[in-house]
Amino acid sequence: MERSLSHIALFAALIAVLGLVPKIDLAAGVPITAQSLGIMLCGTVLGARRGALAVLLFLGLVALGLPLLSGGRGGLGVFAGPSVGFLIGFPLAAFVAGFVVERTTLAPVWAATAGAVIGGIGVLYAFGIAGMAVVLGKTMTEASYLAIAFLPGDVVKAVLAGLVTQAIARARPGALLSRA
């Protein structure tokens, strides 16, 4: 029980901290924040259930008024804005990413990359696009044009999620709770 709780809380803090670090420069100088990488790692490292709970806890603290989203954003306002769909999709993305790692026997790097693509892009974008469609009064197709701008960064992050998960699997085989 204590271990579950502490892992959920510490990974919620990890998501927050990854959003506080300055934007990471990718090879081509494309700035991305590591925050959504944190969301994917919650799933791929902690597994479906704990990962989703960590993300929910993080979102709860954001809603309570802590400036933990990247760029120091937070409070209830972010849940009323056009990005609300992505926020709602975060815990489900972590759940699906974790589910894929738990239920496949692929090597951690491939399982986590696949999980991050399916959860962190597939599931997340479905919710994110729906949210933008509602708030911005657009059709799903129109809203999806807006989401495409984020796609290259998120593909890179899915690959990074795979690499980081593999690094953890190598450094602490027992710590990868999604495979425990």
Binding site: M1, E2, S6, L18, V164
Partner: peptide, 30 residues
């Protein structure tokens, strides 16, 4: 850059174990 993410996640995992210890040391969660 992104290379700090893996050590950061490992640090979070280690901290989680220690926090679990500290919780158990003071009675744990029911």
């Amino acid at each position: 850059g992104w290379r700090i993410v893996a050590p950061a996640a490992l640090a979070a995992l280690d901290d989680a174990e220690r926090v679990a210890d500290a919780l158990r040391a003071r009675g744990g969660t029911e």
